[in-house]
């Protein structure tokens, strides 16, 4: 029962994160939204694994936690590596 409430809250927040990812306006907002979405997915999978009574789903949650962190780093590296040709348009991003 309470688990369902938590899962619903998570889904609502995930929808909010998607909205922020589409709205932008800067690229950092999108990164933030994707990061938020990822963390909420980890939690959602963990909660759903208890609702469904399938604890082996927790492995999937674990790998998400991992992937989420690495994507953020990859994105940041992408910016800093190509700083000369990429960064000048930050902020004017449509």
């Amino acid at each position: 029962m309470i688990l369902t409430v938590v899962a619903l809250a998570l889904i609502v927040v995930m929808a909010m994160a998607i909205a922020r990812a589409f709205l932008g306006p800067t690229i950092y907002d999108r990164i933030l939204a994707v990061n938020l979405f990822g963390t909420k997915t980890v939690l959602l999978i963990a909660v759903v694994s208890y609702i469904a009574g399938r604890p082996d789903f927790l492995d999937v949650a674990l790998i998400y936690a991992l992937i989420n962190f690495i994507s953020v780093i990859a994105v940041l590296r992408f910016f800093e590596y190509g700083s000369s040709k990429v960064n000048d348009k930050v902020g004017k991003d449509a």
Binding site: Y28, V42, L58, A61, A65, L66, N68, I73, L76
Partner: peptide
């Protein structure tokens, strides 16, 4: 496994936030 997830998120979450904010500041 839950403990692992907890540890992992507790370490990576703030780190990611820190790196993102810093990167945004550097990006102008």
């Amino acid at each position: 496994k839950l403990l692992l997830i907890l540890l992992f998120v507790m370490i990576t979450g703030p780190t990611a936030s820190h790196a993102l904010a810093k990167s945004a500041l550097h990006g102008g």
